[in-house]
Design a protein around this nucleic acid. Sequence first.
DNA 1: TAGATTGTTAATCGATTAACAATC
DNA 2: TAGATTGTTAATCGATTAACAATC
Lengths: 210, 210
Amino acid sequence: MEEHEISKAVVKRLPRYYRYLGDLIEARVERISSNELSRMMNVTASQIRQDLNNFGGFGQQGYGYNVKYLYQEIGRILGLDKIYSMVIIGAGNLGQALANYVKFEKRGFWIKGIFDVNPRLKGMTVRGIEIRMTDELPQFIRDNQIQIAALTLPKAGAEEVVPILIENGVKAIWNFAHTDLNVPGGVVVENVHLSESLMQLSYNLNHTDL
Amino acid sequence: MEEHEISKAVVKRLPRYYRYLGDLIEARVERISSNELSRMMNVTASQIRQDLNNFGGFGQQGYGYNVKYLYQEIGRILGLDKIYSMVIIGAGNLGQALANYVKFEKRGFWIKGIFDVNPRLKGMTVRGIEIRMTDELPQFIRDNQIQIAALTLPKAGAEEVVPILIENGVKAIWNFAHTDLNVPGGVVVENVHLSESLMQLSYNLNHTDL
DNA sequence: TAGATTGTTAATCGATTAACAATC
DNA sequence: TAGATTGTTAATCGATTAACAATC
């Protein structure tokens, strides 16, 4: 992989580059300079070139970047050239929203199972994926070599389930519960704290002038 | 309000302070020093003191911070002492998940209506909130003095609806659509790009050593 | 008063932007 | 070749951490 550590700020920008490049492909654009892209994205051309050169030289002097090639390379950097097996823990609205979001599967994130503690949901399916009871989780993770778990359940349940996930081999947690999870090194956590996002909105609403 | 501009990084940390302070109140803790809090939250005590002092001196030398008071003050800074009227545009799973999330209302974010273009949803309710057709939106926003709109619909629809929202007085957009919205100054956008979050997870999964 | 801890200034670190030589 | 644009070094800017005087 890379020689040096890539900063969080850079990693956060990569998916946005990827999205814009995808749009350019759809628009049949073949090449783009850091300058044009910077105008589209409202960032500096310098930042784009610096960000990309963390991972290697993808452009060509006097030409710019080939859109398709750069898209593919950023996809590879993000790990989108691989296939992942995923479970969703918590079959409420949010869990079902994720399960129904087909685009994840297009990007290689396969949802293998949905779990809940509510026995009334047992056997029901969401987009063909069966809802299972949480006690089946350890076996299921091992049998299906699950790498990623999305936690769409309340705080207390999330904290309980994390050690079970990790014991059985889960390597990444997409955490929607309103708590900071404790995981050992080598396990990755990505937080989506919706209420904190709404509070930031609220702050900005109150501190932005017309 | 404040004299100088507060950095985005600081604003992003405020809701997390708020959450930890809420937990401390529940645990009946009366006072806390920046040092104790820093250990709980895995940040430096210096950062906590710097962050808070952007907004004023909430502590007392030799004592620390009064938990309840600090909680209340951060809530006020975040605008959580006010009440907001909100609509959700897009009555899919994600929109319904937001509508069902009662805690938002506890924090003063009242969901007044849910909108969709699908006529089959017309008249249905989610937690007592009626689903309305998008053509009723302009009137509804004005009549109910809606300040915030959550966009839980596909990209194209989101881009179409934004000018309508703004024309009728919406001041903040909570954007779940996979696109960067164009809004005039004075209108606030907070993005929640789930697929980009998943890509960051994927990156970290592939670039973290055991 | 002595001890603790803040508020704040100064030092350090890292990220962004500018500049330009290399080169297609 | 001349023009364009990258890759990369240097300069700037901002954010984080350290240090300590002020003070409860």
